[in-house]
Design a protein around this nucleic acid. Structure first.
Length: 896
RNA sequence: AGGGAGUUAGCUCAGUUGGUAGAGCGCCACCCUUACAAGGUGGAUGUCGCAGGUUCGAAUCCUGUACUCCCUACCA
């Protein structure tokens, strides 16, 4: 970076002039790189791989900010940090994007054929796949880019195959005909987790099924009348007196005329509806189970596109909704529709396409989950993996207890094709890590590979080790596996986190991470999920353009409390943009005052013996030490917002509003020892401020850091300040000085308060008489005379007795045991009535306080039971309050 | 239906061993005081969802209750 401290700085911080330049410099300098071998302790984080088709959205931005904060903080704490980036091939999403493109050319993927289509997707990936990476750079993500991985890279693909084959050989992966969630538009199965349930106002239709050979009807209620075409039985409760005699007989299926049996099962709730349930094993999950136990035929009535098939007789070719309409009409005509009543139900929708999900019978690959779940539960129960917030532990364990087999095959073209080959001659399935040209049993060459690909989450589940070169024993894995922490949104706890834990334990014999930090999700200002369809999504890149990446990052971190979802607010970003500007200008002022600053040749270490700092310097350093302690504790506990808030307070209020104001006369004044000292303190403090803030707001801090007279090569690799490093400097802080300055601040505030409340113009100089409570306080007042005069805009300053209070404003200040009375003559300045009002307000409040305080202290039980400090503090407060009240009442009588 | 979380100032939210409520933003008043008007100074605002209980004392612990949100499951 060029030496630019002499350059003039703009009076506004302009992120656009800084961010790209600084980032490029970091990256070119190799600051993000991790070392496979190092003497430093390792710290590793894998980035939840965003979809390769994706744009960076607000959810990513939050997720990445948290990770970048952690990673930068650890790096500055001397860790060998690996933040491993990657992207996900995102089967469905990516295929959809490219299909959309094809559509513009009036092509479908089927016309193109599988091979050409996949080639086309790769082309697309090569062209746009890095887009999200460039957006991540805008945000400041300090990933080790050289290690970026794509889920379809050769290495990862090998890992995928190895895992598949291994689990298949252990019968943990199997092929089966099962009822699965089916998305018509995708013509593919989807997993349970990809189904979104939405509340729908539907109807419950009561349909008459004629009992065979009689004129009697059974009334069957259903929310999906079209499925009756696939009925293979009707079912009643075995003890239901109404229907007992019919069990074993048959009914005639309306419209199709098929005869189906009346069976009995305790699954039926006699209280609900008519107590008779139609059983459609091929299109309903509950019915499927009943169908299995009663060995009923599974009648599939749908095609892969979710249109009715030949089993639907006259309704063949219709879409589900059309069929429903037609069937209801026909039932009505035939007098078989008893009634229709409104009924609220929730219907599964495909999270990708929004289409209604149909339970569909098909051949799929499944992963058995129950055995894998056992150790995955144990590591969480034992605390080997900790969730943060802890409440997710329960949710996780609950889910693991009811876990069902995972349908891992997808009828798509883009993804990891399933490494299974079917023999056309002997039907044997050969599952292999390498491509197969002949059947492993009959050696026929007549084999073809399974057309399906694996669920995207299959490869994601291996991410923590597949990205580190597994199955090879790499140095990377030796150093960085298990990873230190996983940061992600709670929405993919089951999709991803749980499955990584299971796979890590199965294949690495070790947890993939020890900590899971689940942050909240960003919602819009009304608390709704952000989504494209609602049109309420916010583009973080646009926000960065408007306010800068640092402001955006800070706004996330400052409001990221305990994993709760939080509402997006542009106003908040603006507020933190203002904070960035404050940092910029505070530094700008300080740098101007440091133009002639000479770095002491013997360094800082000799300082304590050499210089005597002003109370303001000692006060500032003391506060700085306190902030560093707070920040360290907060960071250790991952209470990031506590850290940012403490820094915000310190930088804006303590440093800018008070310290700079106290020191302006000195810093802008003639050369002096005080000035030299202060310059040193300012230079050091700024340096520490930049380092403290760096993980949160990396761009502005690096830029300013480079302009400081005291700095190292780069802020991002400098040591993170804490109360233990640079002790020599922090030791210059003093609590006694801090108390003195706190008292002076109170005095100045009291003067300002009297001015403000009495509407005394800032231009109006006033006189003040300060009455110290004791000799010590008197010394402090005298010592800080000029600060009080400047900041209080005082013309004549006097320390002494109370004297004549006639026509004077009065304030009584207590800081710990110190007391100061502030007396300001108002005669000829303002209307006395304003001051009367002000004092009356105080009197009122004090009277109330004294009432409750003395009430409590008169309570024997309180005095007896409460902690001694508490009682003592109350006694002191009461005495002070009484004293203040007395003074104010006196002044009231003498005011007019 | 089961599970989880929430209810504190106009808004968004803090409040870590129980000790007389805080921040940011917004609002009101005054001020362009040469670091910053993306600023400064001062000010106002809360029976901490409701009802009980434990306690000298409860936003904080316990019980009940109302409402909101999320997740999982779903009765045809």
């Amino acid at each position: 970076m060029t030496e630019n401290s002499k350059q003039t700085m703009s009076d506004r911080y302009s992120p656009a002039d800084v961010e790209e330049k600084v980032y490029a410099w970091w990256e070119q300098s190799g600051f993000f790189k991790a070392q496979d071998q190092s003497t430093k302790p390792p710290y590793s984080v894998i980035l939840p791989p965003p979809n390769v088709t994706g744009f960076l959205h607000l959810g990513h931005a939050v997720d990445h900010t948290v990770q970048d904060v952690l990673v930068r903080w650890k790096r500055m704490n001397g860790f060998n940090v690996l933040w491993l980036p990657g992207t996900d091939h995102a089967g469905i999403a990516t295929q959809a994007v490219v299909e959309k493109e094809l559509k513009k050319e009036n092509l479908t993927r089927h016309q193109l054929g599988r091979e050409k289509f996949v080639a086309r997707v790769w082309e697309w990936k090569h062209q746009y796949g890095d887009r999200i990476y460039s957006q991540m750079r805008k945000l400041g993500d300090s990933c080790d880019w050289d290690r970026a991985v794509f889920t379809l890279d050769e290495g990862v693909s090998k890992a995928v195959r190895k895992v598949f084959v291994s689990l298949y050989k252990k019968s943990q992966i199997y092929r089966g005909t099962r009822l699965v969630n089916w998305s018509g538009p995708l013509e593919s199965a989807i997993s349970d987790l990809e189904v979104e349930h939405r509340q729908i106002k539907g109807s419950l239709w009561h349909i008459k099924y004629q009992v065979e050979g009689t004129q009697d009807f059974l009334i069957v209620a259903t929310t999906r009348p079209e499925t009756l075409l696939g009925d293979s039985a009707v079912c009643v409760h075995p003890d239901d007196e109404r229907y007992k005699h019919l069990i074993g007989k048959h009914v005639v299926l309306p419209l199709l005329g098929r005869k189906i049996p009346i069976i009995a099962d305790t699954y039926v709730d006699p209280q609900f509806g008519s107590g008779v349930v139609k059983i459609t094993p091929a299109h309903d999950f509950n019915d499927y189970k009943i169908g299995k136990t009663h060995q009923l035929p599974m009648i599939n009535i749908l095609t892969k596109k979710c249109e009715l098939n030949e089993n639907a007789g006259p309704y063949k070719g219709l879409k589900v909704q059309e069929a429903r309409k037609r069937i209801l009409e026909d039932l009505k005509t035939q007098g078989l529709l008893e009634k229709e009543e409104p009924h609220a139900l929730s219907v599964g929708h495909c999270s990708r396409t929004g289409a209604v999900v149909e339970p569909f019978l098909s051949d799929q690959w499944f992963m058995k989950m129950d055995q894998l779940a056992v150790p995955a539960k144990r590591v969480v129960e034992s605390g080997t993996i900790r969730f943060e917030p802890e409440s997710w532990t329960k949710v996780y364990l609950h889910w693991m207890n009811i876990i069902e087999d995972w349908c891992i095959s997808r009828q798509l073209w883009w993804g990891h094709q399933i490494p299974a080959w079917y023999c056309e001659d002997c039907q044997h399935i050969t599952v292999s890590e390498t491509d197969v040209t002949e059947c492993e049993t009959c050696h026929s060459k007549n084999v073809r590979q399974d057309e399906d690909v694996l669920d995207t989450w299959f490869s994601s589940a291996l991410w923590p080790f597949s990205t580190m070169g597994w199955p090879q024993e790499t140095e990377t894995a030796k150093t960085f596996y298990p990873t230190s922490i996983l940061v992600t949104g709670h929405d993919i706890l089951f999709f991803w986190v749980a499955r990584m834990i299971m796979m890590g334990l199965e294949f690495k014999r070790d947890v993939p991470f020890r900590e899971v930090y689940l942050h909240g999700l960003v919602r819009d200002s009304q608390g709704r999920k952000m989504s494209k369809s609602l049109g309420n999504s916010v583009d973080p890149v646009e926000m960065i353009g408007k306010y800068g990446a640092d402001a955006l990052r800070f706004s996330f971190i400052a409001h990221l409390f305990s994993g709760k979802d939080f509402k997006f607010s542009e106003q908040r970003i603006e507020g933190y943009r203002n904070f960035m500007n404050k940092i910029w200008n505070g530094t700008r002022f300080a740098l101007a005052a440091l133009q002639d600053f000479q770095i002491p040749t013997d360094g800082l270490k000799a300082l304590p013996n050499k210089i005597h700092l002003s109370v303001y310097d000692q006060w500032l350093i003391f506060k700085l030490g306190e902030v560093e302690k707070t920040v360290e504790e907060s960071m250790e506990q991952h209470r990031f917002s506590d850290a940012t808030n403490a820094l915000y307070q310190f930088v804006w209020y303590e440093f800018c509003d008070w310290y700079i104001e106290f020191m302006k006369p000195v810093l802008n004044g003639a050369p002096s020892v005080d000035r030299e000292n202060s310059q040193l303190v300012v230079a050091q403090t700024l340096n520490r401020i930049m380092r403290l803030l760096h993980p949160f707001v990396p761009f502005i801090t690096e830029e300013l850091y480079q302009k400081l007279p005291l700095h190292d090569k780069t802020c991002m690799l400098d040591q993170y300040p804490n109360p233990r490093n640079d002790r020599e400097f922090l030791a210059l802080g003093s609590e006694t000085a801090a108390l003195e300055v706190d008292l002076i601040k109170e005095v100045i505030s009291a003067i300002r308060n009297i001015r403000g409340e009495n509407r005394i113009s800032p231009a109006q100089k006033i006189n003040v008489r300060l009455v110290p409570g004791d000799g010590e306080v008197q010394k402090h007042l005298a010592h800080n005379k000029s600060a009080i005069m400047t900041l209080g805009r005082i013309e004549n300053f006097e320390i002494g007795d109370e004297g004549n209070l006639s026509k004077c404003a009065l304030a009584v200040i207590n800081v710990k045991t110190a007391q100061v009375k502030v007396v300001i003559p108002l005669e000829g300045l303002v209307d006395i009535e304003e001051e009367v009002k002000r004092i009356q307000k105080l009197v009122e409040k004090l009277t109330k306080d004294i009432g409750s305080l003395s009430g409590r202290l008169n309570n024997e039980n309180f005095v007896k039971n409460a902690a001694e400090e508490v009682v003592e503090a109350d006694r002191q407060l009461l005495a002070q309050s009484k004293n203040q009240l007395q003074n104010l009442q006196d002044s009231l009588t003498r005011l007019r």
